[in-house]
């Protein structure tokens, strides 16, 4: 029989009310409170209940997560449930925090339930499955039923349907899907076109997501005091590609010392080349400065327009790289730049 772990807050874990909301995490090898309902409805046994006060999780998130992950490292389980959190904001955030951490650490399916008004939905719907739930505990049975039904589908290896059919909040994860009625694209296109012409409602198969912008960093006041780094997604590397960066769908990046170099010397002289598979490499191999302009930066450095060109440039390959990998590499590179006291970045892409 498969095994499940359930996460509850102090109230549903039967510790007490608001007065014990700073209750530290504990794990019990039994079914506590709502965990019993899960056990009844699941095609799995609930072996452990994790209980944590909402305030403890809210104000000591890192510590709480660490303690709970430590509890779980010797527990054998196939699926993890958190909540339902209804409209309780702190509980929702707690279910999201721990759910996300468990998913990342143990790679098991994690399912929760929250009311649409719960702030945990917006923050964590991309990380774990969250089903729409009721406002309050009056909906406990309905909400647990919904998420255990879905959990059972996963446990039994059944085919999972799209988010709108299964019912969980959309996560921004898009996969191809064979339509049951096999309506070909040409029919869908003509139908959509006629509706659009006639001013009728239609549904785009690719709703354009809102641009996810980051806060604009302030302008540099005095460049002549600034260290600037060059970063590229154009795949410029030393000819032997020491970090074995992939030519496409890259998961690796490298940093290469350019201190003392006036320019990047080329492939023929056994120095730098591109390994990017997404464009014709001839020009970049002949003169890597067309992608990573070390020569121009040195000139500005010599003229005193910039304080310093950072001693390393950073490189990876942009083509076919998933957003997740690109974001991770971006974070890692940003960390390096921080450690090296760089203040500004020129990123060149191909």
């Amino acid at each position: 029989m498969k095994k499940a772990v359930v996460y509850l807050n102090q109230f549903f874990g039967q510790i007490g009310g608001e007065d014990v909301a700073d209750h530290a995490p504990e794990i019990r090898e039994e079914k506590v409170g709502a965990a019993m309902l899960y056990d009844q409805l699941l095609d799995a046994e609930v072996t452990h209940t994790v209980i944590c006060g909402d305030n403890f999780m809210g104000s000591n998130t890192e510590e709480a997560v660490e303690i709970i992950l430590d509890f779980l490292k010797d527990v054998d389980f196939d699926i993890f449930f958190a909540g339902p959190a209804f409209q309780a904001g702190r509980y929702g955030m707690a279910c999201g925090e721990i759910g996300k951490a468990v998913k990342e650490e143990f790679d098991v399916p994690v399912i929760s339930s929250m009311n649409i008004e719960n702030p945990g939905v917006e923050v964590f719907k991309k990380d774990i499955y969250i089903f729409p739930g009721g406002h309050s505990a009056a909906k406990m049975r309905d909400d647990v039923k919904k998420i255990t039904d879905f959990g059972n589908k996963i446990l039994n290896g059944e085919k999972l349907l799209p988010a709108e059919e299964e019912g969980y909040y959309k996560r921004g994860i898009r996969h191809q899907y064979f339509l049951e009625d096999e309506t070909p694209a040409y029919e869908r296109a003509i139908d959509m076109l006629l509706k659009k012409i006639n001013g009728e409602e239609f549904e785009s198969e690719l709703p354009i997501p809102e641009l996810d912008l980051v806060e604009i960093a302030p302008a540099i006041e005095d460049l002549s005091e600034t260290t600037i780094a060059l970063v590229t997604s154009g795949g410029i590397v030393p000819v032997d590609n020491p970090d074995k960066i992939q030519s496409a769908s890259a998961t690796r990046w490298g940093k290469y010392d350019i201190s003392g170099m006036d320019r990047l010397e080329n492939r023929d002289s056994n120095n730098f080349k591109t390994i990017h598979a997404g464009y014709d490499p001839a020009a970049a191999d002949a003169d890597p400065n067309v992608v990573v302009p070390v020569d121009a930066m040195r000139k500005y450095e010599e003229e005193g327009r910039i304080g310093k060109l950072h001693d390393y440039f950073y490189s990876t390959v942009g083509t076919g790289t998933t957003q997740k990998e690109a974001a991770r590499m971006g974070k890692e590179i940003a960390q390096e730049l921080q450690d090296a006291n760089v203040q500004a970045v020129i990123l060149t892409s191909t």
């Binding site: 540099i220 940003a334 921080q338 760089v342 203040q343 020129i346 990123l347 892409s349």
Partner: peptide, 18 residues
């Protein structure tokens, strides 16, 4: 990638054709 670098607080300019 550019976003992560800017998020970390760096002033960054992207040079790109597209």
């Amino acid at each position: 990638m550019v976003k992560e670098i800017e998020k970390a607080g760096f002033t960054v300019v992207q040079m790109a054709n597209l």
